[in-house]
Design a protein around this nucleic acid. Structure first.
Length: 441
DNA sequence: TGGGGTTAT
DNA sequence: ATAACCC
């Protein structure tokens, strides 16, 4: 559910990339020079029930009590006191109250404060990372647990590097607690998959190091392929139809047939995952590529009703985009129609935002509302035949195709000097990157 | 199942 | 524009 996560990757010390222009600092992962065969040390940090932690920081009187965060009729996450009393993530409010009558619920539909805390975590991790370069060497002692209690071989350079990773993870968690009051788990391993899997071995607020020799034990400790990150709902169903349910089933299944069934890309990727192999890079997530606001409800069946809801969503979005500083060039409207089926999919329509509206975006926000709503209602009528009865259960507005602040025109010097407008100006130059913090749940 | 996000096709 | 993935 919700949590923030951070990845650090390194193979050799590298210089830090300067910040993005005009925004918060964002992390990037290390780019390994072509041809070098270096192994990686990945630190995966996983905050415990992030929303619930933020609520307990905002309302200290809630500490120690079983606390759930509610969105509509769901308890989307809860603190560990509540978990001990049987509350699960994404549990129905009714079921949760039944299991745990003392459960305290706070509404978590407005993500603003979670988002703010997430930004603080991002900034903190970045500062910590800069400082790391000048840190004193420390004793060669592992921090936290070692998966399977495997002994560390101090003559093995891979062990040593992972061990240092465990110290970095501990420092990160310490800093997060001291500066922001947040606790979390960490996993240290040689790739993202393994680091993520091992981070959950000792919970809450502990960390675990995985040595390469134990990686097969770790992946075979999964009871089902659906527990493998990267294998989601749909893929699990298709694999089950092929008789594949355990990690070993997937390892030993014919590659040829798997490729025919799932396509070469998915097949090869997930079969590698089943062996604990994952060469996917730590990707710079950078500032968000889109902003959206959504609301779900039992029923919306008139155009006026829809317009009111869209206006609300848009107003919040305009505030957020204004704070971000960049300007969206595309707007999208998403709906979910009522259906009795389980997996009701969404439909969307998008269009370019007219340039005269984009220009007004930074300054007066109310001039922008009316023309923007007009655009959105055109998209709405494109999807929904308003002359016929309809029943919607969700509306969402999304701003995307965000471009950096200025209005540089093609052919001008300014155009070529604006990083986001020219094509690949930044690739390959940075030597140290990190995935940013992102919110979940 | 909420209220978000990302990448691939 | 949709479909898959993540939480």
């Amino acid at each position: 559910m919700e949590r923030a996560e951070a990845w650090a990757a390194g193979s050799s010390p590298g210089a830090l990339e300067p910040e993005e222009p005009g925004g918060l600092p964002w992390f990037h992962d290390q780019v390994v020079p072509a041809g070098s065969s270096s192994s990686r040390v990945i630190v995966h940090v996983d905050l415990d029930c992030f929303y619930a932690q933020v609520e307990m920081i905002s309302h200290p009187e809630l500490k120690g009590k079983p606390l759930g965060v509610q969105q509509k009729y769901l308890v989307v996450t809860c603190n560990y006191e509540a978990r001990e009393l049987g509350v699960k993530k994404l549990m129905n409010v009714r079921d949760a109250k039944e299991k745990c009558p003392q459960l305290v619920l706070v509404n978590g539909e407005d993500l603003t404060r979670y988002r703010e805390m997430s930004y603080k975590v991002t900034e903190m991790v970045e500062k910590r990372l800069e400082q790391l370069q000048s840190d004193e060497p420390s004793a060669l002692t592992v921090s936290g647990h070692v998966y399977g209690n495997q002994p560390i071989n101090l003559h093995d350079i891979l062990h040593i590097r992972l061990l240092i990773g465990s110290q970095i993870a501990a420092e990160m968690r310490e800093a997060m607690y001291n500066q922001l009051g947040l606790t979390g788990c960490a996993g240290v391993a040689s790739n993202k998959l393994l680091a993520k899997l091992v981070s959950g071995i000792f919970k809450p607020n502990q960390q675990t190091l995985l040595l390469p020799e134990s990686s097969q034990d770790l992946i075979h400790s999964l009871n089902h392929i659906k527990e493998m990150p990267g294998i989601g709902y749909k893929t699990t169903k298709r694999l089950e139809a092929l008789g594949i349910s355990s990690v070993r089933d997937l390892q030993t299944f014919s590659s040829k047939i798997l490729e025919k069934e799932l396509g070469i890309s998915v097949a090869q990727r997930i079969q590698k995952l089943s062996f604990g192999e994952d060469n996917s890079p730590v990707t710079p997530s950078g500032p968000p590529q889109s902003f959206s606001e959504e609301d779900s409800f039992k029923k919306c069946s008139s155009e006026v009703e829809a317009k009111n809801k869209i206006e609300e969503l848009l107003a919040s979005l305009l505030n957020r985009v204004c704070q971000d500083g960049r300007k969206p060039h595309t707007i999208r409207l998403i709906i979910r129609r009522y259906s009795s089926e389980k997996h009701c999919s969404r439909e969307s329509r998008q269009c370019a935002i007219p340039s005269h509206i984009i220009q007004k975006l930074g300054i007066g926000n109310y001039d922008v509302m009316t023309p923007m709503v007009d655009v959105l209602m055109k998209l709405f009528r494109n999807m929904v035949n308003v002359k016929m009865p309809f029943h919607l259960t969700l509306l969402s507005v999304c701003f995307c195709n965000l471009k950096a602040l200025n209005t540089a025109k093609k052919g001008t010097i300014d155009y070529y000097l604006t990083p986001s407008l020219s094509t690949t100006s930044r690739s390959g130059k940075h030597s140290f990157k990190m995935k940013d913090i992102h919110m979940e749940d």
